[in-house]
Simulated scan of single mutants.
Amino acid sequence: MGGTAVGGMAAGGGSDAATAESVEMFVCGNGVHTDLVLPAVTPAMDWVEELAAGPFPATERWVTHFAFGWGDRAFYLQTRRWSDLSPATALSALVGGGPSVMHVTALRSPAGSPDCGRLLLGEERYRALVDHVRGSFRRTGDGAVMPLPGSGYGPTDLFFEAVGQYSPILTCNEWTGRGLRAAGVAVGAWTPFAGGVMRWVR
């Protein structure tokens, strides 16, 4: 899907014109799953502060972005590698109805990655996207996110309690699509598969 060249890299067709207030964000996929990749700190949102309770390197100087992916708790936590996928876990995810988690990964900027599409969003649209992501975290009574210690695949990622239930209708990729729609990015009306998201942002 074509876009406007901004800053030497093609921006997705849903991008705003580049201004001083524009926020650069990415949508990245591996062919099966998609993540929203947002800058660590902007005037609209400080994810470092939001995620500081998690025992992973949210505050390290090299961290410029966080990747957010929502999905089925059992599938995420029991399938660290594709070889770990069991028929029971696959069937449970297919049927849906189980609890969800948010997977957060600390990253350097993915600019230039062939697995990612780039978008520029004005502040209002970016805030709408942030509201979608923030609203997907389950929180304590005082509003803090709820990390699951020791749940990450490595030292730079961590899982958090999330709201909502994964289903064949609300998949991990449809969650991404809903966030993009909330931000006014043109995507399909329903995006259950990774390809249905990525075609709109590349």
Rank of each mutant, 00 (worst) to 15 (best):
residue 47 W to F: 13
residue 55 P to D: 03
residue 35 D to G: 04
residue 40 A to N: 02
residue 64 T to N: 04
residue 66 F to P: 00
residue 28 C to H: 12
residue 27 V to Q: 09
residue 49 E to W: 03
residue 85 L to G: 01
residue 56 F to C: 01
residue 113 S to Q: 09
residue 45 M to T: 09
residue 115 D to L: 15
residue 110 P to V: 05
residue 96 G to E: 03
residue 105 T to C: 03
residue 32 V to N: 07
residue 43 P to A: 08
residue 28 C to P: 02
residue 54 G to A: 10
residue 84 D to H: 13
residue 70 W to Q: 00
residue 38 L to C: 11
residue 29 G to P: 05
residue 104 V to K: 09
residue 28 C to G: 15
residue 37 V to K: 07
residue 115 D to T: 14
residue 98 G to A: 10
residue 101 V to P: 00
residue 96 G to W: 06
residue 38 L to P: 04
residue 69 G to S: 13
residue 32 V to M: 09
residue 32 V to A: 13
residue 94 L to F: 11
residue 26 F to Q: 09
residue 63 V to C: 04
residue 39 P to F: 11
residue 30 N to Q: 12
residue 111 A to Y: 01
residue 66 F to Q: 02
residue 90 A to G: 11
residue 94 L to R: 11
residue 46 D to I: 05
residue 100 S to H: 00
residue 50 E to G: 04
residue 70 W to T: 00
residue 37 V to L: 08
residue 58 A to W: 00
residue 58 A to K: 00
residue 93 A to Y: 07
residue 72 D to N: 14
residue 88 A to K: 14
residue 66 F to K: 05
residue 34 T to W: 04
residue 50 E to L: 14
residue 32 V to D: 09
residue 42 T to K: 08
residue 106 A to L: 04
residue 40 A to V: 05
residue 59 T to Y: 00
residue 36 L to M: 11
residue 27 V to N: 10
residue 60 E to Y: 01
residue 42 T to W: 06
residue 40 A to L: 13
residue 111 A to V: 12
residue 53 A to Q: 11
residue 44 A to P: 01
residue 56 F to R: 02
residue 34 T to C: 14
residue 114 P to R: 14
residue 102 M to K: 04
residue 35 D to A: 12
residue 97 G to K: 07
residue 105 T to A: 12
residue 70 W to N: 00
residue 63 V to G: 08
residue 33 H to P: 10
residue 46 D to R: 06
residue 78 Q to F: 06
residue 77 L to N: 10
residue 81 R to A: 10
residue 76 Y to T: 01
residue 30 N to W: 14
residue 67 A to T: 05
residue 58 A to M: 01
residue 28 C to D: 06
residue 31 G to V: 14
residue 107 L to K: 09
residue 83 S to F: 07
residue 105 T to V: 14
residue 62 W to H: 06
residue 62 W to D: 05
residue 55 P to I: 03
residue 78 Q to N: 13
residue 31 G to S: 08
residue 78 Q to V: 04
residue 42 T to E: 06
residue 83 S to P: 02
residue 52 A to P: 01
residue 102 M to Q: 12
residue 25 M to S: 13
residue 29 G to T: 15
residue 97 G to C: 05
residue 28 C to E: 14
residue 41 V to E: 11
residue 44 A to Y: 03
residue 111 A to G: 08
residue 45 M to K: 13
residue 58 A to N: 02
residue 109 S to P: 06
residue 109 S to Q: 05
residue 93 A to L: 09
residue 29 G to K: 12
residue 81 R to K: 13
residue 85 L to P: 07
residue 63 V to D: 03
residue 69 G to P: 01
residue 103 H to V: 07
residue 82 W to H: 06
residue 82 W to T: 10
residue 67 A to W: 05
residue 77 L to C: 10
residue 56 F to I: 02
residue 85 L to N: 02
residue 107 L to V: 04
residue 53 A to D: 11
residue 86 S to W: 08
residue 102 M to V: 00
residue 69 G to V: 06
residue 90 A to T: 02
residue 53 A to G: 14
residue 100 S to C: 15
residue 57 P to N: 01
residue 96 G to H: 07
residue 37 V to A: 08
residue 67 A to H: 03
residue 36 L to Q: 10
residue 31 G to Q: 12
residue 73 R to F: 13
residue 101 V to I: 08
residue 82 W to Q: 05
